[in-house]
């Protein structure tokens, strides 16, 4: 597979390390009332989508950026690649 890095351009997926669903960005509030339940959902439960899947890849043998890659899990077509950093900020990870 090829992942088109937002800055470095097309790179072989072998340069990257895969983590999983991009929802892992949204670490729950540890102070919330049902923090244990929320963390259980966050860490263990997966949509595991057959279709467009937003997922985290780490450019380990590159610039060490985490990317959010939107990829179709049925066809492997890559639809979008963004810096996870930007996504996290945009999606409200303020701190």
């Amino acid at each position: 597979m090829i992942i088109t890095h937002p800055v470095l351009g097309p790179r072989d997926a072998q340069e990257f390390t895969y983590l999983g669903d991009a929802s892992l960005i949204h670490r729950p509030d540890p102070e919330a009332d049902d923090a244990t339940g929320a963390f259980h959902e966050y860490l263990y439960q997966r949509e595991n989508i057959a279709g467009e899947h937003r997922e985290l890849w780490f450019h380990e043998q590159g610039d060490r950026s985490w990317l959010v890659v939107t990829r179709n899990t049925l066809t492997h077509e890559v639809l979008d690649v963004e810096f996870a950093n930007d996504v996290a900020r945009r999606e409200g990870r303020s701190q």
């Binding site: 597979m1 997926a13 072998q14 999983g20 997922e55 899990t73 049925l74 066809t75 492997h76």
Partner: peptide
Amino acid sequence: DGYNTYAQRGNLP
């Protein structure tokens, strides 16, 4: 292979 997929095929690495 290490990435989520339903494609029933893998890659060269």
